[in-house]
Design a protein around this nucleic acid. Structure first.
Lengths: 233, 233
DNA sequence: AAGTGGTCTAGACCACATT
DNA sequence: ATGTGGTCTAGACCACTTC
């Protein structure tokens, strides 16, 4: 690991373990540079990540201060399964569809590919702690996800992507709105027809700029919970 | 403005105006350094912001490439009014409550202040394009928002904070879930009792680490729409 | 082998806050 | 006046990609 990340981890640890306490002033750049045997700029890079995390505030002329403790945000840069496991829950999947189709106009636009390109189309009901909770409608380019099988979809597609294919997820866009359950959704999620569902539309980017997923998930309202934090750029 | 921000703006402009086109390779660091008469590190800082924006991907060994066009994300680091205006909508407010109260246990924890500290407590119904759309329950420390009047709450509190008090918003945390309308909400939002609403709980931080707002907003499901993008840190 | 980004240094200079 | 962070430079060295 590179130096500034090591320093970042070390200082983060100190904050989380209260070695540096809330509102306490951190040592200045020069002192930290001596401690970690590096230049002040390298210290700055480490502290800048802590600032983005919201754990530190730096004030020109007065110093760097410890701020709020880390809050546990569910990252939507992981899959449904990884998030559930992080919260100690069991996930199974019920595949409604696993097919390869040519991209139509709309899908091609979302996936930034050409019409006719081959696309995995997967519809799954995710069952969390024995409760049908989400129905996920997912589109992924075959040329990126080459080798994806129905077995992977039973488990975690994200783990296939990161562990097997060694691809790295960079970012995602997300839109949340409320929709009414149609017949299929009603049946599979065990809710009344026209009951309200939380619709989440996502486009997920790899760090090379490629899009590997476009999906629409519909969640039951009882179970849906989303939390995040923003930092102004 | 500092150099790297100027360079960032310039290059962003070139991408948005298609001078640098999608998937096109940008000039390398040394060339850009010559063009902008600066060091390569300064170029890197500018390009790094474009990477965070998702507009550029940098690949060690091969170069920097233009990626997807900017998408219009509604920032929740602005107020309800600013967001509505950006979408060309009219906002008015109907104040249900404007009081100053001492912080109880729960509020003190959320606002990271002491029990008994004075807090503005404001409840407003926001009417967007003649439709009652959100009921906002807001708590703000008096010592930070000193001078806030009921007139400001009729308009935009955010504009008071940024324009009058010259405070800068740094970040926010946000939680979304679905709840049932109680009597007050049902009446004011003109929906049936127990109808579902989108509850958004927010804590907003200033760049000095202080919290200036804790709020719970409840939106009608017909109108709620949230979009954002994440970047993995 | 050549091209290109990423990390790191030492030091200069500036902007802002505190005393 | 002093302390502290922010920007910027010039150059070294390394890691990865392409040819």
């Amino acid at each position: 690991m590179v130096k500034y990340l090591k320093i970042y981890e070390t200082i983060k640890q100190r904050i989380l373990e209260m070695e540096y306490r809330l509102n306490e002033k951190l040592p200045d750049g020069a002192s930290l540079g001596k401690e970690f045997d590096c230049s002040e700029l390298t210290i700055k890079k480490a502290l800048d990540i802590l600032v983005a995390d919201g754990l530190v505030v730096r004030k020109r002329g007065s110093g760097s201060f410890v701020k709020r403790p880390l809050n546990t945000t569910t990252s939507h840069l992981h899959g449904t399964k990884a998030n559930a496991i992080k919260h100690g829950k069991e996930v199974t999947s019920n595949n409604l569809k696993f097919e390869i189709i040519p991209a139509d106009e709309r899908i091609a636009e979302r996936l930034n590919c050409n019409r006719g390109d081959l696309i995995y189309h997967i519809i799954r009901v995710r069952i969390i702690d024995s409760l049908p909770t989400v129905i996920e409608d997912t589109y992924m380019p075959v040329n990126i996800l080459n080798g994806l099988t129905i077995e992977h979809t039973q488990d975690s597609i994200y783990s296939f992507i990161t562990n097997q294919l060694k691809l790295k997820i960079h970012s995602s866009t997300m839109e949340i709105s409320i929709v009414k359950a149609n017949e299929i959704e009603s049946e599979n999620l065990n809710v009344p027809l026209n009951d309200k569902l939380v619709a989440v539309e996502q486009i997920v980017y790899l760090d090379n700029g490629d899009i590997f997923e476009y999906s629409i998930s519909k969640h039951t309202t009882d179970t849906y919970h989303f939390s995040t934090n923003f930092v102004r750029l």
